[in-house]
Design a protein around this nucleic acid. Structure first.
Lengths: 134, 134
DNA sequence: CACGTTGATTAGACTAATTCTAATCTAAGA
DNA sequence: TCTTAGATTAGAATTAGTCTAATCAACGTG
C-alpha cells in the first residue's frame, strides 16, 4: 500500500509534513469530513498546522485528484478520499453522508434500488464549458 | 397568466408586498440568481425591503414549492423559479447556470446528449432518510 | 369594516466559513 | 550547500447567512 508521501510524489505535488498529515488522516477516514473537522483531528497529532494550511492543502489535493468534493448544499464543504466515480446519499435527519455506487445513476433507479432508504430528493449537476466558452 | 399574488394565495402563503416583489422579479428571470443579486435588483424598484426579508422570503417560497434550489458547490445559494423536475449545467469558465432537461439523466447520457458542451463533471446527490433514521 | 392576533418586516449585530496578508520558512533542484 | 519558488503561519478581513427584539401589517373574526 502506498504511503501519503508516495501519493504526493506520484502526482508531482511538493511534499510537506502538513500535506502528508492531512492526506494520511483522510485516507483512514470514511466520514466525508469538513475542513474544520480535518483541522481539529490533524491538529491533535500534529500541532504544527494552521487552519489556512488545511484549506490550502484541500485545494491542492483536489487539484491533484487525490480528493473529491462532496456536493451537498446548505452545509459546509466536505471531502472524500475515494476519488472513484460514485455519488452520495445524505440523511436529512442525522446528516451523515454515505457513498452510493455509480451504477445507481437515474433518479428512478436510485429510488428503486435504495429500498432501505427513504429517498426524498435526487439532484444532479453537470459541470464543464458551455457553447460560448468552449 | 397568473400574477405573483395569485401564486401566493394558491399556496396559502400570506401575501405581502415584499413577497410579491421577490416572486415577480424571479418569475421574469432565468439567471438562477443569488440572494444578494435578488436583494439588489428588487431593492432598486422596491426600496422598502431588507436583506433579511429576502432570505426569509426565499425560504418561504422554497417551502411552498414556488422556487427550487440549485445545487452548486463553491458558490452562493442560487434559486430557480422553474420548479419542474430538471437539472443544471454550470459553465466552469463564465459561471452561468443553465437548465438541463430531466430526460438527460445518466452521466453517460448527459455527456452524449450535450454535444455542444464540454461536460467535465456530472455529480448527483440523493437526500432522504437513511436506514437508522427512517 | 374596525379590531386583534399572529406572523412578517426591519436594521443592524452576530456567527461561521473561508480567504487574504505579509512575514517567515523550507523542499528540492542546481 | 545555496537559492528560490512556493508553502506555512497567525490573525485580520471578508462574505454569506442567521438572529434579535422592536415595529408593522395581513386578514379572519365579530
Amino acid at each position: 500500500m502506498r504511503t501519503p508521501t508516495q501519493h504526493l510524489i506520484e502526482k508531482s505535488v511538493k511534499v510537506t509534513a502538513q500535506r502528508a498529515a492531512v492526506l494520511e488522516f483522510l485516507q483512514g477516514n470514511r466520514d466525508h469530513p469538513s475542513p474544520d473537522e480535518i483541522y481539529r483531528k490533524v491538529h491533535k497529532r500534529f500541532p504544527y498546522i494552521s487552519r489556512a494550511t488545511v484549506y490550502n492543502t484541500i485545494k491542492t489535493l483536489l487539484k491533484a485528484g487525490l480528493l473529491q468534493e462532496v456536493l451537498i448544499q446548505q452545509d459546509t464543504t466536505r471531502v472524500d478520499p475515494n476519488v472513484s466515480q460514485h455519488h452520495h446519499f445524505k440523511c436529512l435527519r442525522c446528516g451523515t453522508v454515505e457513498d452510493m455506487p455509480y451504477a445507481l445513476m437515474t433518479a428512478d433507479h436510485v429510488r428503486k434500488s435504495l429500498k432501505n432508504y427513504q429517498v426524498q430528493e435526487v439532484r444532479m449537476v453537470a459541470e464543464g464549458l458551455c457553447r460560448q466558452c468552449r
